[in-house]
Design a protein around this nucleic acid. Sequence first.
DNA 1: CGCCCTATTGAGCAACTTCAAGTACTGTGG
DNA 2: CCACAGTACTTGAAGTTGCTCAATAGGGCG
Lengths: 268, 268
Amino acid sequence: MHSSHERSLRAFLDRLCSRSALTVEEKQAVLDLPGTAIQVRPNRDFVPLGKRVDHSCLVVSGVVGRFKQDRDGRRQIVMLHIPGDMCDLHSVVEPVATSALQALSNATILQVPHEPIRAAAARFPALSLALWRDCMVDSAIMAEWVMNVGRRDARERVAHVLCEMAIRLGSGEQGNEVSFELPITQAHVADATALTPVHVNRTLQALRAEGLLEWKSGRVHLYQWQQLKHAAQFDPGYLFANMKPVRGGGERSAVEFHRQDASAIVVT
Amino acid sequence: MHSSHERSLRAFLDRLCSRSALTVEEKQAVLDLPGTAIQVRPNRDFVPLGKRVDHSCLVVSGVVGRFKQDRDGRRQIVMLHIPGDMCDLHSVVEPVATSALQALSNATILQVPHEPIRAAAARFPALSLALWRDCMVDSAIMAEWVMNVGRRDARERVAHVLCEMAIRLGSGEQGNEVSFELPITQAHVADATALTPVHVNRTLQALRAEGLLEWKSGRVHLYQWQQLKHAAQFDPGYLFANMKPVRGGGERSAVEFHRQDASAIVVT
DNA sequence: CGCCCTATTGAGCAACTTCAAGTACTGTGG
DNA sequence: CCACAGTACTTGAAGTTGCTCAATAGGGCG
């Protein structure tokens, strides 16, 4: 029991540490957070719209979507969350949910109460900044999604989402090829890209026909990573993957500044 | 000189205090922040994409847009910022800009260096949470924009943006009527709603023909607020306006919980 | 084997775009 | 005070992308 709980928190800690340098004590404070694991069914809100919550939801396994819905039933996924994401971290400072959370596949969620998170943040200012920073990466992703859904055509949109998932899941590239598990349906892709399921289907067929990808039984193969990136107009800078973790706010000496600037946030 | 500088910071402090309860010392720490005011020309980046910045930009006057652009020149505004917004606050924890900042009208910006902000945040944990919370409101707005641009039709999109601006600008309602200054062009609305300028024009004409609004020489009149809200499917909860400011993370006793829940974030 | 969910296909349609021209502001200099 | 220039706004007609509706095929599981 306890070991799986700690493994889940470690995934979250790894996420934090990929962008923020933390001390041993700060890391331990994260690993010491309490939490209760729950199983959630696909396609049912586990955090409904407008709900005031007193815990954040760490995705342990599965894929989670943040949903908006209007009175006509039109749905939009505004964010996808993968294992290691604290999909609800913002609720630490703003506990009223402005979008619903729903699993897209069977998923395990670790509910981490806000109080201990706030206590740790208050005790370690650098940890507070790390959590804040994590939220800002999600924010940068949503900004990119506004662009994706607003200005790109169907082909670019679908390709872009897949490129993003490839990077966020840390899929190992082998040459020009990338592959990863993505246990979601075409209808979910439609909700994420603001297309209809029918059109997502046709778009995927076209990409498949070009030999750019394959997607069956929950596994995506991107056969021509460079070409797909280009087709999607995908520039991974906004994901802040592969960056050098920074301590505190990211302040740096003039020397460091020059040394690092050229290679900042470059992901091939 | 100094009095205008302090007035600008006070606008930002008011924004913070509308959602976060701060002590006198914390408030003073905000007002004591240094900054240099600059004038920026419309339609030219004052923070370019990919730039590493060491200050945040407080909008003193005018309207500022966060822009994404692709290699074909298609543009998307992912966020609008109004006076009192620290449009760049996220750069305190993530100094590399993933979108460009551009004024839409003549604007005055107060550049506030990161270092003193971080120092104040480290000294006052509640202030740190308040800043974080402010960023999360922007994040909630962007989530709503994904929905706006993704799933709503032209009429709803345009109406929704105007409703949002009405609330954020704190426009006084008189009965069913709202009015506010919005010094931006139809082309900017097109960039924000992911439409073409031509179609924005036609959409505004239709709304005007219905008697829902008037927009001339930079002033917007919404004549039928309730009807427009309905037409836009606008629910202002995501703006966290008119909420009761919370201390720290927003933790509350069970008693408070019940007392407040019913009236939380209700904006008519 | 049969059910349910997901994926696929086809045909007609609608919303929004594109291109291209023309009109009305707004501010500036004479 | 008017003429001019530049920007913003408006109009029309034709073209496309993606939607809607509806039906069929495939795949996993009890």
